[in-house]
């Protein structure tokens, strides 16, 4: 899997340097960090697109990579990218907080980052099986729809429930993080199972 991870990393970093700069800039802007985390989780789609363009998949299926490994690598790439950006975002928030320039409490901001990364990974998990089934080119509109919908919903939720201190949080809010974590784990598991199935079914 390390070979595939390295391949995706090299391809993405060489092709999308501007994208990385944008992610960093978004991470610096208070309230925009969510977007950079989502961009991170979208990077596997970019890797998919370059794979499709070079028809790498045809060669990979002759190499010592099982369909399961191919699928797991793409998820792992997404986890690493979204995870990496989240860590960066967390560090930036801490620095803002230490400098007295942060918005809201640090704990709330960390919670927002955690929820954002889980939601971003869930968006990725919704998209992955579709890509493995019909390819990145055909699934482009679906990908855009899912990503934008979830990002807008999150932005709307956080701006009302977290940053507006006048809003009274519901009683269940303390269970929200563990709840989202459980839902995320279930979605990831189901998505991976479905992707492995679609990737295996591609063999005709």
């Amino acid at each position: 899997m390390r070979g595939l991870l390295l391949k995706d990393w090299l391809v993405v970093i060489k092709q999308t340097k501007v994208y990385f700069v944008l992610m960093f800039v978004f991470a610096l802007i208070p309230g925009m960090g969510v977007y950079s985390i989502f961009f991170g989780a979208l990077l596997p789609m970019t890797a998919f697109a370059y794979d499709e363009r070079s028809r790498w998949g045809q060669m990979a299926e002759m190499m010592p990579y099982s369909p399961r490994k191919v699928v797991e690598e793409k998820y792992m790439f997404g986890y690493l990218m979204a995870g990496g950006i989240s860590v960066l975002e967390a560090v930036i928030q801490i620095l803002y907080y230490l400098a007295g320039a942060g918005q809201g409490g640090l704990a709330e901001n960390m919670a927002v980052i955690l929820v954002s990364v889980m939601m971003a990974l869930n968006v990725m998990a919704l998209q992955m099986p579709v890509i493995f089934r019909i390819g990145v080119e055909k699934s482009r509109i679906f990908l855009m729809f899912v990503t934008i919908s979830v990002m807008m919903a999150l932005q709307s939720f956080f701006s009302r429930s977290v940053f507006e201190t006048t809003v009274v949080l519901p009683e269940w809010s303390s269970f929200m993080l563990p709840g989202i974590l459980v839902v995320t784990l279930v979605i990831q598991l189901l998505s991976r199972m479905l992707s492995v199935k679609f990737c295996t079914d591609k063999k005709k």
Binding site: L10, V11, K14
Partner: peptide, 14 residues
Amino acid sequence: VGIVLDEAYFPEVL
């Protein structure tokens, strides 16, 4: 098994 297909399908930036 060493494989060479009809074209080499490496990503173009590598």
